[in-house]
Design a protein around this nucleic acid. Sequence first.
DNA 1: GGCGGCCTCGCATAAAGATGCTAACGCAGG
DNA 2: CCTGCGTTAGCATCTTTATGCGAGGCCGCC
Lengths: 217, 217
Amino acid sequence: MPDINLVYYEDNRELREGLAFLVEATPGLKLLGAFGNCHNLPEEIRTLRPDVVLMDIDLPGISGIEAVPLVKAVSPAIQVLMLTVFDDEDKLFQAIRNGASGYLLKHTSPSELLAAIFDLHRGGSPMTASIARKVLLHFQSAPVPATQQLPTEDYRLSTRELDIVKGLVAGYSYKLIGADLGISIDTVRSHIRSIYDKLQVNSKTEAILKAMREKLV
Amino acid sequence: MPDINLVYYEDNRELREGLAFLVEATPGLKLLGAFGNCHNLPEEIRTLRPDVVLMDIDLPGISGIEAVPLVKAVSPAIQVLMLTVFDDEDKLFQAIRNGASGYLLKHTSPSELLAAIFDLHRGGSPMTASIARKVLLHFQSAPVPATQQLPTEDYRLSTRELDIVKGLVAGYSYKLIGADLGISIDTVRSHIRSIYDKLQVNSKTEAILKAMREKLV
DNA sequence: GGCGGCCTCGCATAAAGATGCTAACGCAGG
DNA sequence: CCTGCGTTAGCATCTTTATGCGAGGCCGCC
């Protein structure tokens, strides 16, 4: 099996060099590059073509979290392992949503870090147990996973009324909606009336918000 | 620190005895009981009062998955670690939803298992990397905000301007916003001006939509 | 055939919003 | 000290929305 090719983003020079040393001493791993920021990330990733990217979260300029989608944009197959000193919940979930595949706290021992890299490359998602707990809790509390099926009350809007609502949600004025649908502004008003009636609102704003929240459009 | 008290449910006698041996040989752990099925689980848990329950998934009669809520019913503080040979996705998520805090494949080495028990007791959620990957994938695909984490451009709205935007997004009229913030409607207008300027829009609707989409509020 | 819902259009008025111009006050920074 | 920005405020004017009242055409249904 060929070596696992790594790229490392970390603004702290000592850590960067420490890991470089660690990786170079480990058979099966190859560090293609280590950088202090993500400003040239797309080019770096494109030219180096790593298998795994180690990403510090708190980078100056473009944060590690923002960098994840950039990596994934070059190639979704590249696995990103987040490294951080803080187990900030928000950042954790942002990183996960952005496509990170692993999440380790920096107090992780070198041997665990190395194991994590191999795990990651094997298709696993190594994470610190405390991180994993947070993820599980989200699963248990929030009904995030299954398709958030709110009853989506049926307001019985006609197709034309839905056209109008779409226009509203698109941010159009009555005039524009009318032009768009080829009807007069007064007709638009007319439809708006019945829409308000059915949605039980009395302003454009409320209608839009309700339509969006209940995903009528 | 007192020992971590364990109870183990596993129908395979060899495994049961193997783990009993392993635990007994480990300082800091104490096995209070090991059972081949969950038929008397509530009583067993109530009387033994373990800190951690190790639970095989494929048990005859009441499955390990069904058993998790029973354990949690006795005391939600008890941590449940699932052990299984199969990494069946459905079972995994059922177990998580039922309140399991950790999830290991049985090919896990004894030392990792022991580490997992300590992790669990410390508040972590040990899981095999491949299991963790499944969990993360659910996070990435399922959630509604899966659209994309656009860089959330910084429009440099002042705090007051954000107050106003919140009001808009809440569906309030200028009058209401003014009343809410204790300022005159003309001041609201004034802020609205600069908000439109910064957001590059020119209607309430556009501002609201932009604010919502870019989650400025 | 008549009833009701939907789509169309119009006029009118009142309320809300958009925008131009102006201006006072305080506070931070050059 | 002067400048810039945020916050406050007022006035004027035009546009957009909200709503009341009315009306004709089309279609499906009892």
